[in-house]
Design a protein around this nucleic acid. Structure first.
Lengths: 236, 236
DNA sequence: CAGTGGTCTAGACCACTAT
DNA sequence: TAGTGGTCTAGACCACTGG
């Protein structure tokens, strides 16, 4: 593991273990440099990483401070990792409705940047939180990148398998949100009434080399789901 | 303006003007270094900035590539700048319902980190897109940071005034999303039926020094609003 | 004006990709 | 294995904050 990642982890662990609160001040750069025995730029890189993750914020001329959000039970829209981490205090389970190799829909082909003749793994599942329905998920995996899936993998964490099992490196993702009313079928899966509020989250996940490998459409139960984002100001 | 920001802007402009598409390759680092006559780290810093903004992605051993999203008419949840930029092809207007100095609600006081005895500017407005209702916004500004607002400012871009007029520097923000059904009052303002789907977006905006100066609750018209996020993978 | 973070450089060396 | 991006260093100098 790289130095700056290692250091970032240690600083994050330090914040966690000492239960530091928003606004608490970290040691100054000079101190961190000598403590970790690295150059200034390396420490800076670690802190930039933590800043991107929303763990700290840096104020020129003043110091480095802890950033926290106060609310619990929210799903991070940025985490890229499913919500296992955000909701680790809750019991999350999955029921697989469908799993098969098929041709992509036009929409899926377009978003995955493949032809209608290529093959995809289609996965449909309902996810539960504390025995309540959380969401209905339809997902398309480019089969030339993810050549094999089975029921066991799909019941557990698919992304974990992709990273650990296949050794693929997940890069960036594009996420689109829409609101609407639930269709009869969706309402049935989620145990809600027809026409209830619906949040549809469409995501396109790419490998680090820019290739899209997954397109998914997730319909959330409006009673069980709330989301958060920590935004930074790199905007002019 | 700093070198690396300047360079980032020029690269972005170059991409824009030449209408480069997702996956198009930019010149290699060496070329960029000599062209802009700066060191490698400066170019790297520019590219890291563009990567954060979702404009490019870098692949080790391969190159620097353009990143684009395909869909138009979506509001960026990360832009921190209202949606003026995302929806610049559309006509956005505001109607101010209420504007006054008052004591904060408990909720506002908590989120702004002030006491119930402190004062806030309370702003309530409806925003329109192409003559259709887009959202209903309730916003609380810490008066000790934003000491004055008037109808004119509030009808235009409040954030612009805060930055240009007051010289404040806007930093990070925390954003929370909830779904629900519209109340009767909300439905009336938005011209929708009672009980229609509701997306509530709560945001807390901070200055670069970490001080929260605005807490806002925005209720969107589900028929007019869709959102997007470009996420990066700085997550282990 | 002392303290603290940010920018920028020049260069050595490392790690991944594509051929 | 050549090409390309990523890490890391040591140090000079700049810019902002706060007493």
């Amino acid at each position: 593991m790289l130095k700056y990642q290692q250091i970032a982890e240690e600083i994050e662990k330090y914040i966690e273990e000492n239960a530091l609160q928003q606004g608490d001040k970290l040691p100054v750069l000079e101190t961190l440099m000598t403590h970790f025995e690295v150059s200034k730029s390396t420490i800076t890189k670690s802190l930039d990483l933590l800043e991107k993750k929303g763990v700290v914020f840096q104020v020129r001329g003043s110091g480095i401070f802890v950033r926290r959000h106060k609310r619990k039970g929210y799903i991070s829209l940025l985490s890229n990792q499913g919500f296992k981490k955000d909701l680790e205090d809750y019991k999350i389970t999955s029921e697989v409705i469908e799993l098969e190799v098929r041709k992509p829909t036009q929409e899926a082909a377009h978003n995955l940047n493949i032809s209608l003749d290529d093959e995809v793994y289609y996965v449909k599942r309902v996810r539960y939180i504390q025995e309540q329905t959380l969401c209905l998920e339809e997902s398309y995996y480019n089969k030339s990148i993810v050549p094999y899936l089975n029921n066991e993998i799909v019941t557990e964490s698919i992304f974990n398998y992709i990273k650990e099992g296949l050794g693929l490196k997940v890069g960036f993702s594009d996420i689109y949100l829409h609101m609407d009313k639930l269709s009869e079928e969706e309402a049935a899966y989620l145990g809600l009434e027809n026409g209830a509020p619906k949040l549809l989250v469409e995501s396109i996940f790419h490998l680090t080399n820019g290739q899209p490998f997954n397109f998914s459409k997730v319909t959330y139960n409006y009673q069980q789901s709330q989301f958060f984002i920590q935004a930074n100001s790199h905007f002019s």
